[in-house]
Amino acid sequence: MTDTSGDFRERIALASARIPFQVKVGAVWAVLFALLGMLFYFADYDVDWMRENFTFILRGLQFTLLMALGGIVLATILATLGALARLSRNPILYGVAGFYVSFFRGTPLIVQMFLVYLALPQIGGNLVDRYPGLGTNFQQALILEAATAGTIALGLNYGAYMTEIFRAGIQSVAHGQGEAADALGMRYVAKMRRVVLPQAMRVIIPPTGNEFIAMMKDTALVSFLGVAVATAEMFRRSQLVGKADFKNLEAYVLVALFYWALTAIFTFFQSRLEARMETGYVRESRSIVRAARNPPHGDLPSQPHGGLG
């Protein structure tokens, strides 16, 4: 009995060795999806409800993306300025940047969102009460839409984290590069813009892509500020309809899938971008580089083959 079972396992191992590794991994994913599907089926997952509310939730995508995009633009600007300040010998710039990074890394993002959304208007109101000369325009300027406040808070928060990424990227550029730019009589701004920052980008872009993807998911936090339905992002929308119809399972699974798909898409584009950044740093033509990066799977002896045999 043990002999035949050993034989059987041996044959399975041999047969499976011919299947490419990625195909096996794909099979595992398919099984996991199927199991989840079964779970939802037995939990009386309401597919019709999902179909009816699909577009309503998906319409939040534009606001999710808009906030993430606005946030990353603001964060990139702040991180560039912050990194240059952290690298400067000017005590004021250095101090301000350090203060900024410390505060926004040292407090929760959700607290920062409420500070921008609800605390700023109070500052405005009380200051105008005390100094009427400031005018109501000043007061009005500090009262922000929830989405705007959320975007600003996202930008401020991520900008603080990205300051360190940008600083490391700038420092990764060889010292001689700056000297060569100096020797050509370039001013500081020209040196940074034409020589240092483009080279730093190679180091900066991959982690910044990760930050952007993370920020896309953190836009869900803006829902806590109570956005109006018309401009609500995906999570807020799923919350609203899920609660109203007692379909929390369907609503949250659906919105989770949206975020997941979004992340997968942007991860794909990010890897393409990273490959493009190699221009000027690899000698081989692109096709060779690509082949070297993605070795053919399957019959390579170094690939793991599971626990059988």
């Binding site: 060889a174 001689g176 590069q177 060569a180 020797a183 050509l184 009589g185 483009p198």
Partner: peptide, 20 residues
């Protein structure tokens, strides 16, 4: 900076800009 505009410098390690 103005002095440097008039003096061309060539380094031992070239220091060409690799992205250009």
């Amino acid at each position: 900076r103005r002095v440097r505009l008039h003096a061309g410098m060539v380094f031992q390690q070239f220091y060409l800009f690799p992205h250009l």
